[in-house]
Nucleic acid binder design. Sequence first.
DNA 1: GTGAAAGCGCTAACAC
DNA 2: GTGTTAGCGCTTTCAC
Lengths: 350, 350
Amino acid sequence: MVTLQDVARAAGVSIATASWAVNDNKNVRIPESTRRKVRKVAQELGYRQNAMARSLARGQSDLIGFISDGVATSPFAGQVIQGAQDEAWRNGKILLVVDTNGDAGMERRACSFMLERQVEGIAYSSWVHHAVRPPRDLDKVNSVLVNCFDSEGRFPAVVPDEVQGGRAATDLLLQAGHRRISFVNAVDPSPASQGRLQGYRDALAAAGVAYDPNLVIRCAADQEGGYGVVEQVLASGATAVFCHNDRTAMGLFDALRERGLHVPEDLSVVGFDNQEIISAHLHPALSTVGLPQYDLGVLGIRTLLERGAEEGAEDAEDGEGSALAYKPIRVTCPTVVRRSIRNLAPVSEV
Amino acid sequence: MVTLQDVARAAGVSIATASWAVNDNKNVRIPESTRRKVRKVAQELGYRQNAMARSLARGQSDLIGFISDGVATSPFAGQVIQGAQDEAWRNGKILLVVDTNGDAGMERRACSFMLERQVEGIAYSSWVHHAVRPPRDLDKVNSVLVNCFDSEGRFPAVVPDEVQGGRAATDLLLQAGHRRISFVNAVDPSPASQGRLQGYRDALAAAGVAYDPNLVIRCAADQEGGYGVVEQVLASGATAVFCHNDRTAMGLFDALRERGLHVPEDLSVVGFDNQEIISAHLHPALSTVGLPQYDLGVLGIRTLLERGAEEGAEDAEDGEGSALAYKPIRVTCPTVVRRSIRNLAPVSEV
DNA sequence: GTGAAAGCGCTAACAC
DNA sequence: GTGTTAGCGCTTTCAC
């Protein structure tokens, strides 16, 4: 292994000068010629910094922990991590990712591991948007919740704006002229099912359409669920359906086709989640509202880093007592228009 | 921050003894009482090892790099990483994951980053099984290729056994009594399309069924591809189809349904990949052959670690010249039986 | 058995 | 401007 010492010796300078030259430290004035020489020698010798030693000396690791409960199981987690990684990288940090698979013991161990590694913060994420009780150790370090939140607001959190998303989905249908719109929601209460319902109601209200509880149908949030509610949907007399997610829509598509019915001629459909593998490839392709996964990752890390910077600044204020609980940052869900909506009316400017 | 020094002082022992007690070092004889006292003090003080300092002193980082070209984009990558992480963890190592998104510059930077971090090895993985040219830096360290390989065999590689998988898929159909079996393959040549075709032919040959090139249909390996070849499939007179992947099968399902045809009554179908979100939820659910993603990850890391151990042992042998190229390790693809196959004959013992 | 002390490779005061 | 040097927190050899 080539050390800085070797480089310094070979370049005929002191180890300090070598360090400055290699790091291109502007605070110290070294002639450009020396800088170049050192760097050339370093290159030739195949010198590579030892980040361990550097971190130890500087008291800064440039590491950020990322705890996820399902990179493996969920098609969503990957995008979140990608966003987080990109944002971290942009700030000269690197992500230490651990997938706990939802296991609490694993979570604790992951935290320890990260803290031992001197991470500068931990992003704790869940693949499904819900309330969580993060491991105790999490408040020992600058941390942030991604796609989840703690009810007490002890941590900053970044989550998708389910209400806005539900409203956007419904608006898509309203704008196409539909007035009798069914909402096939998930049975289980969750930020998603509650928020999207709220959004659905908000959209209807804004459009002056009365809310009819009979149009809200509930089922398991997957293909089988959607497949099973087809009769209810048809019986409701709706001309359009907003499905809780793309999987439900996929099941509904299957059931409709078996009855010889066509989307969007017989029924317009909007999904949620934008699971590309489904939504982009159904026949016809499904209009839907996407989850801002990548952005959640980016904003999570950004929030973490900003808070880290503040912490450095605030000398007086003692964090412990800061009574004001964090309000989750809500991220907009993007609309994705495809072919599953039939236009009943000429598009009006809304 | 509580250091080992603090613990030692508080426990009234030397820093060395404290280190031994904390690490429960068996090579040195310290009375159990002292060990316990030190550990108790450490606990009380909230002491936590500094992995940076430890690594620096021991010259061992316990870090393994994992480069992937698509955690985000692919539903496959997640499982591979999960397997890799589990196996690493089991050996007291932690994974440093970087997603390069297929960008060569990013790959190089990721390598540098990892080498600076003193990783003990790098697993380089691709989400699609294919030949790769890994970044130059990769041979500076113990490394392994996962779900990909280099043509020169310079690195150990772990890949799915496409031939066995293709054979398994075809066997499923043969065992159900089908003799006229179509293979809807991908157009592009790849280890997957070539291997699965080979497996298809092997299975037919073993069953004494003549290979008929007319039964091999080619299309894009996605839903649109499968949707588009329905006429060809029907015209071929096949009673069963082996699709290159689940997405193709999904497209085919849609096209069949639009023609009022049913799976498996009118046509039996087998997919490949076992993309659960599709295969488990089609109507009927799709029989398929899974990719051994988790195992690829596990075996990748295991291979890495084993090679690392060997390296330590082999003093005499100079690795550089070892002419024998690595042969990829082929991992068995598991069969997943669901409802999309019609039994033509009573099951015979095979 | 236990402690003193010499590093691990690098950074950053502080001299000169 | 450049070099000297004291750490960063921990491990481990070598005395006692």
